[in-house]
Design a binder for these strands. Sequence first.
DNA 1: CAAGAATGTCTCAAATTAGTGACATTTAGA
DNA 2: TCTAAATGTCACTAATTTGAGACATTCTTG
Lengths: 185, 185
Amino acid sequence: MITATKKRIIESAIQVFNEDLSAPLQRVADKASVTRRTLHRYFSDRNELVAVCEKAIETSCRKAMIAAIQSSNDPLTQLENMLYAGIDCGAKYSFFYKLHQSKDHKHNTENKNCADYDYIYQHFHQIILQLQKNGKVNSDMSAQWIQVLHSGIIESTVNARHHPTKDFQEIKTLAWTSYIKAIAP
Amino acid sequence: MITATKKRIIESAIQVFNEDLSAPLQRVADKASVTRRTLHRYFSDRNELVAVCEKAIETSCRKAMIAAIQSSNDPLTQLENMLYAGIDCGAKYSFFYKLHQSKDHKHNTENKNCADYDYIYQHFHQIILQLQKNGKVNSDMSAQWIQVLHSGIIESTVNARHHPTKDFQEIKTLAWTSYIKAIAP
DNA sequence: CAAGAATGTCTCAAATTAGTGACATTTAGA
DNA sequence: TCTAAATGTCACTAATTTGAGACATTCTTG
């Protein structure tokens, strides 16, 4: 059973660690409106907290991404929903993406997390390939570059959320519009 | 006089702190291939190092951005060069942008750094406005959103540099192509 | 209300990080 | 080669962060 407090601590930790992995635990506790003592009742040490955060991220991002992939048979809709899923995951997505991109991350297909990551990005590449065949995406752009752009737009959009002049749904649509135009032929 | 070692320490610190502001100084020293003792000979304490990094960032980003703005009278060329300048600044640009966007940053027009930041982004907004008038940029997109996109693309491109399948100049061109298409009408 | 669970307060010891002095070693330049 | 500057090594203290015990307080729920 996962209590509300535990959940709040994890969410706070993800936000804090995403910006500053070495931040003192006090900052996580503060953000979660909880004492450091309480934090330590749920997580025996820093490593455990970080590990749980990573797991939580993997789980929720993976779920959201897979749902997006399976939401339709139309690759354009799939791509759009993958973008929205990333934006909705917010800081989690940045962290998720960082984890697998970081230099010291030893990619390992045996690892279930890596397998899921691979599953997602294999599909992503397939979607791009298909859209390129259909003439809906620029064939001069490699799937790898489009992936970089994809995550960049998600990150920007999530950051833009903090100083919201507009409705958030509107920003998401703006993100999609910009994205699809960027990669159009 | 700024020695090579001092410069190397500053560059390393910018990279390390950009990812993890609370990282131990040992990490900065390691990255600079220097002892922690030597680091402390150049910078009496952490705060001083951070301050020097910020100053270095401000100076070099400001210079590069202003040079980009003054490189031409054609707003499209100006925008293109601002993008390249950001990419060339690399981690410095992320830090520069973060510094002025962060919630706890108290913006102050009296502060010379903020004044420069304002100068740059006022010009940026003017450039966008002019391009929108000329029909070269989508008028439905606010200058603010374009700014978010601009920094997002720079950040992605800089990250993409780490796993370079292609020549870096090619990636820069790709970034510009994607960017201008994203904001085209 | 009563009891038990969750959280907070206060305290403390261990671990890590920060900063510095004293002296050895290396490096660059006259 | 000789010297001075730069850097490294080692040792040490101070400051910060971490993790946990003991007990008080607050919050739930029957």
